[in-house]
Design a protein around this nucleic acid. Structure first.
Lengths: 253, 253
DNA sequence: GAAAAAAGTTAGCCGATCCTAATCGAGCTC
DNA sequence: GAGCTCGATTAGGATCGGCTAACTTTTTTC
């Protein structure tokens, strides 16, 4: 028996999972509402291992009843697997909020630290932090924090900036990026959650934005990861759904 | 290459160590100023593995220049190894202080959580916590917290309660226990760090103690783990060193 | 719809860390 | 100082989670 992963894992009720297994479940969860789903390759990229390793781990997870899979197809979580994944997402986002609010981390520093801590904190720690922060419902990037009961609010009313028509007004609510450089850019452009914006124009390489009086171009790559709460009374064109443009929004945490 | 242990370890300047290796170094450090020193068996007990596993790991650590050893002898840390160990002890005790003061853990709950977190927190986390707590120099058990520069104050003036002569007065400063039940008992007896006490009598099975007006017997096993700051003017007998009685004090953390 | 490209899988291997069982060495007893 | 006992080590093995290389399946391209 290998006692590698002590430290109360989020899954109570069975031999607890290794941090590695937890990571797989989390990434499968985060990729599941994505256009392509949780494919071997995407998982490999996210987790930082080779595709062959993913196949191997998925087999083990399937044996343990945490995922369902058919060879050459995207994987899905079982209910048990989903619960573990959401618990981990709760840990991660709570920790991000905590690091930012209580320890004064910069918003672009929180992700990495939370990534390491999420596997290790106990139920008690989670509870104490939630208490201390009065049950926050958003992390510093605007991502919703699953409740204690693991209910995860879906931001259905939010729209990707990349897909908004010219003239739309709204407020930035989420920044679904992890890359340090990209986050720095978002900060320099002052596009943090809460910021009111207006789409001034659409160009092949990005979106022209009006923010607090000034105007600049947001590269498409970035715009795809800015989720906007569109204002009810847009200046001119009523916001209507557009499809097929830009890249799919992946709800990374 | 195996990326198992990401999460900034405390050792900056080489491929970082696995949590397991870190644990070995820490326990070697904690056992080193003990009577028996860091023997294979004691290490095995503390770490929770079989002696054969200890031998194996010590070989690896020796190859990496972190310990020095001769077969069938107790191990010692090299300077490099010691630095890593002390860094870990700093993490641990800072975390205990943090969990207790900031998150409101009970003093007997902090150890286990700190044990898991200490391997995972970054330099930055350590710094932020130290800041938040204004560089505390003791953890909730009274154990000294190594400074940022890794200087560790030794409590040379503290004496084991088990070895104090009758009539000694003083203040409890450290409780070097980890066992949950024992800690609970210490709490029930109200023998937390800071408590003023007087030795009312010495019995074969323990020490009779005067604490805040009441008097009770502290079992020898417990008394060996209570470190007392002896008052300069004892009521009668001047405190003098006694040897050979009681069990050796192990400076557990 | 055939061929090429991309994605996924299998087989075989490695290193880390643990285990058990068997052997070896150190140090105390008489 | 010959034994005996206990602690330490060695030998051999398991498991976990990664890797590369080679092969298979799916998807895309023309």
């Amino acid at each position: 028996m290998n006692a590698a992963a002590e430290g109360a894992g989020p899954y109570k009720g069975s031999a607890s999972l290794s941090p590695s297994q937890q990571d797989y479940l989390k990434q499968i969860f985060l990729l599941n509402d994505t256009s392509r789903g949780a494919t071997t390759q995407l998982l490999a990229e996210r987790i930082g291992v080779r595709p062959a390793s993913v196949t191997g781990m998925l087999k083990r997870l399937a044996e343990e009843g945490l995922v369902e899979r058919a060879p050459y197809r995207a994987v899905h979580l079982t209910e048990t697997g989903r619960r573990i994944a959401v618990e981990l997402v709760r840990h991660h986002r709570l920790l991000e909020a905590f690091l930012s609010r209580t320890l004064g981390y910069r918003w672009d520093e929180v992700h990495e630290e939370a990534e390491a801590l999420e596997h290790v904190i106990s139920e008690r720690f989670e509870q104490k932090v939630a208490e201390l922060l009065a049950d926050p419902d958003r992390d510093p990037h605007g991502d919703p924090i699953p409740t204690r009961e693991l209910a995860l609010e879906e931001d259905q009313h939010l729209r990707t900036l990349a897909l908004l028509p010219k003239g739309s007004r709204g407020t930035i609510r989420r920044v679904t990026l992890q890359d340090q450089d990209a986050l720095n850019l978002v900060e320099r452009l002052d596009l943090l959650p809460g910021r009111a914006i207006e789409v001034a124009g659409i160009h092949p390489d990005g979106i022209s934005l009006l923010v607090g009086g000034s105007r600049f171009l947001v590269p498409s790559l970035l715009a795809a990861h800015l989720l906007v709460d569109v204002a009810p009374h847009p200046s001119s064109t009523p916001p209507k759904k557009r499809e097929g443009a830009g890249r799919p929004v992946t709800h990374e945490q």
